[in-house]
Simulated assay, not measured.
Amino acid sequence: MASKITFIGAGNMAGAIIGGLTQSGAAPESITATAPNQDELTAIGERLGIHTTTDNAAAVADADVVVLAVKPQIMREVCQKLADSVQKARPLIISIAAGLDATTIDEWLGGGNALVRCMPNTPSLVGQGASGLYANARVSDAQRQIATRLMQAVGIVEWVEDEALLEAVTAVSGSAPAYFFLMFEAMEDAGVTLGLPAETARRLAIQTALGAATMASQSEHDPATLKQNVMSPGGTTERAIAHMEDANLRQTIAEAMQACAERARQMADELAKG
């Protein structure tokens, strides 16, 4: 990726994306990160070999891509201070802030910008992320490819053509790591009740999830078929799955994801109003 990229914000997610980019061949000297904390900048600069500065406007001035990686609560202030520089440079804007819609961010930046919204998730921190992306009408095909390559540095990318579907992405992948962590907790607790040491139960549960996810990602079969393949008639797995079905596990998951998507909509309204 030959573009000059500026990250406004140098936190964990920005660091993960920058690390993924450099590992995949991007030149560190083409990347700049900004933050108000010089110690934070020194650490990321030394670790990744990139340029750093506390001057947001200067970092944007010659950038082809600007990644907004600050907390949603301070996005308005950051964007409004950047607006003049963005209007002059006209870079591709990529926002990884949850909840803030493209129109709101574009207005805060002065309007008329090519803007991509991205909903990443925390496994991006270990290069196994899943990101949903949405582009406004001003984003070119070439800029879509840039955004795709940038987020592929930390995992897989799926585009949605309706911005409202990012709320569904939040429910399916953005918040979903916590669903699986809850499952690990529950399995560990049950394993202990059945007599296993906690550490043993935890390792078995996590490794099994890793193996199942790897199988699902590499298999030509859908999850329903893979599940059925594990279930022998009258066997242990069939008994466990039957109990989960009787307990309406599917409905619980569906309702939880609906609640997640609804909260995402509420947060978007709250953040836009400031």
Rank of each mutant, 00 (worst) to 15 (best):
F180K: 03
I206E: 00
Q143H: 13
S173D: 06
L204E: 02
R144K: 06
V157M: 02
T237K: 14
I146K: 02
A147N: 00
G195P: 09
A168W: 07
V160C: 04
G211H: 15
G191N: 06
P177G: 01
P177D: 01
D189K: 14
P223G: 14
A201H: 11
A168D: 02
L194D: 15
P197D: 14
G191H: 11
N136M: 01
A224H: 13
L182D: 01
G195K: 13
G195I: 13
V157W: 06
A137T: 08
Q152R: 12
G211R: 14
A135Y: 02
T214V: 07
G195W: 15
A186N: 03
Q218C: 07
E163N: 01
A209N: 03
A212T: 11
Q145A: 14
Q145S: 09
Q143I: 12
L226H: 10
V157S: 02
P233F: 11
E199A: 12
V169P: 04
V160M: 06
G235R: 15
F184Q: 09
K227D: 11
G235K: 12
A176F: 12
M215A: 03
N229C: 06
P233D: 12
S217F: 14
T193R: 09
L204V: 11
V230T: 13
M183A: 04
V157Q: 01
V160K: 04
A209H: 07
D162K: 06
L182H: 05
W159C: 01
Y134F: 08
I206S: 00
Q207G: 10
G155H: 11
D222N: 09
L150P: 05
S217A: 15
T214D: 04
A178I: 03
L196Y: 15
Q152P: 03
P223T: 11
